[in-house]
Simulated assay, not measured.
Amino acid sequence: MSTRTPGEDLPVRRIDRILAFMSLGLLLLSVICFFAIMIGSAARADFGTGVWPTVGVVVYIAPILAFVLLITVLVMSLVRRARANRGS
Rank of each mutant, 00 (worst) to 15 (best):
M1G: 15
M1W: 10
S2V: 06
S2L: 05
S2P: 08
T3V: 03
T3H: 13
R4L: 14
R4M: 12
P6K: 03
P6D: 07
G7P: 03
G7S: 11
D9L: 13
L10G: 01
L10A: 09
L10D: 10
V12P: 06
V12I: 15
R13S: 06
R14P: 04
D16E: 15
R17D: 14
R17I: 06
I18N: 04
A20P: 02
F21H: 14
F21Y: 10
M22R: 12
S23M: 01
L24Y: 12
L24P: 04
G25S: 10
G25L: 00
L26D: 00
V31W: 03
I32C: 12
I32H: 11
F34W: 03
I39A: 14
I39E: 10
G40Q: 11
S41V: 11
D46P: 06
D46W: 06
G50T: 11
V51N: 10
P53W: 05
P53V: 09
T54D: 03
V55G: 05
V57Q: 03
V57A: 13
V57C: 03
V57P: 02
V57N: 02
V58R: 04
V58I: 01
V58H: 01
V59N: 12
V59W: 02
Y60N: 11
Y60D: 11
Y60S: 13
I61D: 01
I61S: 00
A62S: 14
A62M: 03
P63Q: 08
I64A: 07
L65M: 14
A66D: 12
V68C: 10
V68R: 00
I71G: 05
V73T: 15
L74I: 05
V75G: 02
M76Q: 05
M76T: 11
M76W: 06
S77L: 01
L78Y: 05
R80I: 07
R81T: 02
A82E: 11
R83F: 05
A84H: 04
A84Y: 02
N85D: 15
G87F: 12
S88M: 07
